[in-house]
């Protein structure tokens, strides 16, 4: 479904992603595991096309120079230079890190905004689906999103991404800053997304422990370089992963 070939991303002279290749197959849950500053968010921004927009805006204001090499293929189509809104139309939707929501809008309005490219009837249908997936959100429907807790905001952020009707959902650190209970709830939600809605998921995370059991395939990223790949089980058994991420 998604193929990344020899991707390199520079911010000025700093190399954020170095010769990174990966593949996501239809119906898989794929994980990218790495510590802080490993390049996870850069990868997600590059896959969602945000970096294309960032690059244009930096050029306009004479700011940071962003350089991209390599190729991103989605369903065998080269989308390396495609902008973010075109990629959303194709079905690649990113949920950014640190639960980005529109703080001054209420929950319902947030979800409506996320359905910008969808038909009205479809938006209402998807909002209904989100409320079924996260019943807690239904009760907070008219609460201003900025007043909600981190976990509630993360549920909303994922819900918003779903309203945009992804076929490939990119989740950037969905578990960041959440309680273990909330982490489990979200991990279950991701599993049910694949099972019930048939959405392919690519998630990046630094907490390997809750994530590794549910992923089909994982990539371990360090300083922008790929260090290890394998299925979820292989990675869990790997002594280096155990030492680095499980503290064993």
């Amino acid at each position: 479904m998604l193929k990344v070939n020899n991707l390199m991303v520079f911010f000025e002279n700093a190399l954020a992603l170095n010769d990174f290749s990966m593949e996501v197959k239809e119906g898989q849950i794929v994980g990218v595991i790495g510590s802080n500053s490993a390049g996870k968010t850069t990868l997600m921004n590059t896959l969602s096309g945000l970096i294309v927009d960032m690059r244009i805006k930096e050029i306009r204001r004479g700011g940071e120079r962003i350089t991209l090499y390599g190729k991103i293929l989605f369903r065998d189509e080269d989308i390396t230079a495609t902008g973010p809104s075109e990629r959303v139309r194709k079905g690649i939707v990113l949920c950014r890190e640190r639960h980005p929501i529109f703080p001054e809008s209420d929950v319902f309005e947030n979800l409506k905004i996320a359905g910008y490219l969808q038909k009205r009837s479809m938006v209402l249908e998807m909002i209904q689906y989100v409320f079924e997936l996260f019943p807690a959100l239904a009760q907070l429907k008219s609460r201003k999103a900025g007043f909600m807790s981190g976990g509630e905001q993360q549920m909303l952020a994922i819900g918003m991404a779903l309203v945009a009707r992804p076929t490939l959902l990119l989740l950037d650190e969905p578990l960041l800053g959440l309680s273990p209970m909330m982490q489990n709830l979200l991990v279950d939600a991701v599993k049910s997304l694949r099972a019930k809605a048939g959405i392919t998921v690519l998630l990046s995370e630094q907490f390997a422990r809750p994530v590794l059991p549910i992923i089909d395939f994982g990539y371990i990223l360090e300083n922008g370089m790929l260090t290890l790949t394998g299925t979820g089980e292989e990675l869990m058994e790997n002594p280096e992963v155990k030492a680095a991420y499980f503290g064993v």
Partner: peptide, 11 residues
């Protein structure tokens, strides 16, 4: 409210 997040929804 948040330009970059809005971009992720195709705005």
């Amino acid at each position: 409210q948040d330009e970059r997040t809005a971009l992720t929804f195709g705005i």
